[in-house]
């Protein structure tokens, strides 16, 4: 009797669905995922997966891990990253060596695809958690990610 079993299956699955949403309804007070944003601006923390902007972390000696290999610049599908690089003399070996002068990042063009971060061999760049990215002047969206006077951490290339 396909006809009647259809009906009973239908009713059963509908009731299963309703019980799931019903449970959500009863628990919504405890588990609401909405953030009351401007009110909790001080305490609001973004979750780990959040892609706010690309940042380049520096350690306490003002050193970053970017070797200037330009893989990220090549990987970026829309030309968001521009690396202005230079050749300097390595103090230890005395050889000429590539180093970054300015790591330019155009936030206004970035689609947050994450390819640059995936491709970086030294994990020099990562996701920032900043979510208040709006500015009044769009030139503020073009950022230099390496701090002035910063240099690459020694031994990162090995």
């Amino acid at each position: 009797m396909g006809y009647f079993s259809n009906i009973f299956n239908g009713i059963k699955t509908l009731l299963t669905g309703m019980s799931i949403t019903g449970k959500y309804f009863l628990n919504s007070r405890k588990g609401a995922i909405t953030q009351q944003y401007p009110d909790n601006r001080e305490t609001l923390k973004m979750f780990d997966r959040f892609r706010g902007e690309v940042i380049m972390p520096h350690d306490e000696n003002n050193e970053h891990a970017c070797t200037g290999c330009q893989k990220c610049e090549i990987a970026c599908p829309n030309g968001t990253i521009e690396i202005i690089w230079d050749r300097g003399i390595d103090e230890e070996t005395g050889k000429k060596k590539k180093k970054i002068d300015q790591f330019v990042y155009h936030l206004s063009m970035c689609t947050m695809c994450g390819l640059c971060i995936d491709v970086c061999p030294t994990d020099a760049i990562e996701w920032g958690q900043n979510f208040e990215n709006s500015v009044y002047d769009r030139t503020a969206l073009t950022r230099v990610l390496n701090e002035p006077e910063s240099k690459v951490r020694a031994g990162i290339e090995d």
Partner: peptide, 10 residues
Amino acid sequence: RVAAWFQLRI
């Protein structure tokens, strides 16, 4: 409001 509660919103 009810819709919001069903979807774990406020």
